[in-house]
Simulated assay, not measured.
Amino acid sequence: MARKKVKLQWIVDIVARKATYKKKVKGLMKNVRDLSILSGVDASRLENDQTKKVMNQENFTWQRIFKARDEVVKQQMKNRKKEIENLRIQ
């Protein structure tokens, strides 16, 4: 039984968009695998999938900097609350 044609448009819901993307990629990879078998040609995986979790040194450094900044801000907020509490006690 054939499905009706889906009109392509931007999916606003992030979760639904990611789920649809994963389904589309899975379907495309199945087609690539089938074509690879039929034609006898080796088809490699998408480069994006292979390097998705690989992080270069610059990105790793920036990520650490942002984490450290967030921790500093949280600690400053805790210190301010403690100072205010100490002033109230005095």
Rank of each mutant, 00 (worst) to 15 (best):
M1T: 07
M1I: 07
M1P: 03
A2H: 15
R3W: 02
R3G: 06
K4W: 05
K5R: 14
K5D: 11
V6E: 02
K7I: 06
L8K: 03
L8W: 02
Q9L: 04
W10I: 14
I11A: 02
D13V: 01
I14Y: 12
I14D: 06
A16H: 03
A16Q: 06
A19F: 05
T20M: 01
T20G: 00
K24M: 09
K24Y: 04
K24T: 04
K26N: 08
K30P: 00
N31P: 02
N31F: 11
V32L: 13
V32M: 10
R33V: 14
R33S: 14
D34V: 08
L35I: 13
L35W: 12
L35P: 04
L35N: 10
L35S: 10
S36L: 01
L38H: 11
L38E: 12
S39G: 11
G40N: 00
G40R: 01
V41I: 01
D42R: 09
S44L: 05
R45E: 14
L46G: 04
L46N: 03
E47L: 07
D49F: 02
Q50G: 09
Q50H: 06
K52S: 14
K53G: 08
V54I: 07
N56P: 00
Q57A: 13
E58L: 12
E58C: 06
N59K: 08
N59A: 13
W62M: 15
Q63P: 06
R64Y: 01
I65Y: 15
K67G: 07
K67V: 07
A68G: 03
R69A: 12
D70Y: 07
D70H: 04
V72H: 15
V73N: 01
V73A: 04
V73L: 05
V73Y: 04
K78W: 07
N79R: 12
R80V: 14
K81H: 07
K81V: 06
E83F: 06
I84E: 12
N86S: 10
L87C: 06
L87Q: 11
R88Q: 10
R88M: 09
I89M: 10
I89N: 10
I89W: 05
I89P: 02
Q90N: 09
